[in-house]
Design a protein around this nucleic acid. Structure first.
Lengths: 130, 130
DNA sequence: CCCCTAACAGGAATGATTCTTATTTAAGGA
DNA sequence: TCCTTAAATAAGAATCATTCCTGTTAGGGG
């Protein structure tokens, strides 16, 4: 018995997420991998993103502007989300003891996500000159 | 010129969010306020939740199980989200200097949200006995 | 080589959220 | 108080990300 079978498409999705730093949406992954796998279906991307997230091989950054964003970098870091353009940038978390938060009085904690929102440099400049 | 006019429905939505501690969805707010305002439409709830969020009078906790959750408590605290039942609980953040994160190299930070995910006590017990 | 089942493509279905239109109502001035 | 104007609203249609369904393909153990 094997729970997960070898899958070229799934491996490609995982590899892509590990390569890029843009925290992609399902659609971005789809259109990107279409270049290599022209028959890749959007449903397959969605399903595998869920499988990979469930397996802890990637993580979700949450929903930005109605679309879920994913991250192949599992190291401890937070995210800055620009309200203007929707860009998601990695943010080093200044040594806050996230482990100390684990298993508080509420239950068993499996993940912590720190999300900052604001305006990125590019959008700050944009907003000055109309 | 007045940007925002007095609005009974909007005030009721804000008051409800300040009263409860369950981090409601738009639909929950709608069905709850229907008891007092039988003609309250779901669209009005969605629009006012957006207006109030934009005005900084409430904040979004993010999307849980496909539905956005809101919080009328603006004090500094994080959230524990149960993967099992979708409950959102307030978590005291152990004095981490969130201000120190403001205005990093990425742009102007306006908000920080710390979200923990895991299994709440009730769901932990549930998972033992099938 | 055969069977069982996971993985898949393609497209339909779902459902939260937003948008549109006509109607109501608050606010401020005459 | 009455009138004018624009915000607020109800109702329902439209949007669109995501999930579900169906038939097909293919991996890998036996």
């Amino acid at each position: 018995m094997s729970a997960a079978r070898k899958s070229v498409k799934r491996d490609a999705i995982l590899a892509l997420l590990r390569d890029v730093h843009c925290h992609p949406t399902a659609e971005w992954v789809h259109s990107e991998l279409r270049k290599t796998y022209p028959d890749l279906s959007l449903g397959t991307v969605y399903r595998n993103l869920r499988v990979l997230t469930g397996a802890g091989l990637i993580r979700s950054v949450g929903v930005v502007d109605g679309q879920e964003r994913f991250d192949g970098d599992l190291s401890a870091h937070g995210h800055f989300v620009c309200k203007g353009c929707g860009a998601v940038l990695d943010v080093a978390l200044p040594e806050m003891d996230l482990e100390r938060l684990t298993d508080g009085p509420h239950g068993h904690v499996t993940g912590v996500e720190v999300r900052m929102t604001g305006l990125c440099r590019a959008c700050m400049d944009k907003d000055i000159q109309p």
